[in-house]
Design a binder for these strands. Sequence first.
DNA 1: ATTCGGCCAGAACGAATGTTCCGAACAAAC
DNA 2: GTTTGTTCGGAACATTCGTTCTGGCCGAAT
Lengths: 165, 165
Amino acid sequence: MRALSQRQEAMLRFIRQYLSERGRPPTVREIGMAVGISSTSVVDYNLRILERDGHLRRERELSRGIELPGRGAPTIPVLGRIAAGQPIEAVEDPTDTVEVPQRFVDGGYYALRVKGKSMIEDHIDDGDVVVVKPQDDVDDGDIAVALIVEEGSPEGEATLKRIYR
Amino acid sequence: MRALSQRQEAMLRFIRQYLSERGRPPTVREIGMAVGISSTSVVDYNLRILERDGHLRRERELSRGIELPGRGAPTIPVLGRIAAGQPIEAVEDPTDTVEVPQRFVDGGYYALRVKGKSMIEDHIDDGDVVVVKPQDDVDDGDIAVALIVEEGSPEGEATLKRIYR
DNA sequence: ATTCGGCCAGAACGAATGTTCCGAACAAAC
DNA sequence: GTTTGTTCGGAACATTCGTTCTGGCCGAAT
């Protein structure tokens, strides 16, 4: 681990800026163009150093295969589907996730995809994803996922409802 | 503008998910693989439809040249450099920007890159970017950008200081 | 002087990737 | 049935792009 050269600092700055402006990583040649390097081998050479020192990660043989650590919003999994009066469906796609603000990651929150337009008055449309916070007590007017545990139905049933009592 | 087919919906979902997980857009072939399309021409065909209907943008002849609208943190420009006891330098790179939380975009905030380690006790290091909120009155102990307007110096001078009085 | 390591340029190779062409299946309308 | 528009699959092509090879320059160490 050594100090970064001026060129390597410029490369890191450019990658950061390119990423936030364009939403995709730059290519080796784009980096070289930006920091005044004519040869792709030199860019590759310095990228290897930056990777060795932990300033970025690379996927080999992949176009634009540069990743900066600590980027991207955190995600939580979408555990199933929910609709008013319908049971929660099994998870269809285990890789289905949604981006959420940081405060949702460690609070036991989970997400469900809404099926149907029964909550359309609350701007919850078909296909929307609701982030659910488990809590025992609800206040009057809260929107809640009411879970009904039944015999023979290991998953139970759940509906999305506005609670009044 | 027509309703999206099931295939196009699946493509959009996959692109969104890939983007948030990997931090880069997928390739045409990766999209096809994910939604069960064997031919790249079919992916291209549907991507053109999605682009025509405004669901995404594409850069032609560019690998991973897919952009989703409304992505990425908002940015504000870095207007110059600042250092204790030194004048603000002219803007070197008009495309130099920093990502900021949403609340900074419309409050008149602007950003300056810090030169030197004179504020290192406040964890403001050389190369850091400070986001400045213009305000007339400062409280004791605030960190302020003090601007000194001079004759013959149209830009004025500014220093970064902690204010006590 | 010689050697060594760090840094660089130019060129070429091969894989990845976007684009295009051709033909076909299908449904709706006439 | 024929036509028309939409969607699709297979293949080929051209460009982009990551990697590698060869060699050169330069300062420090031997």
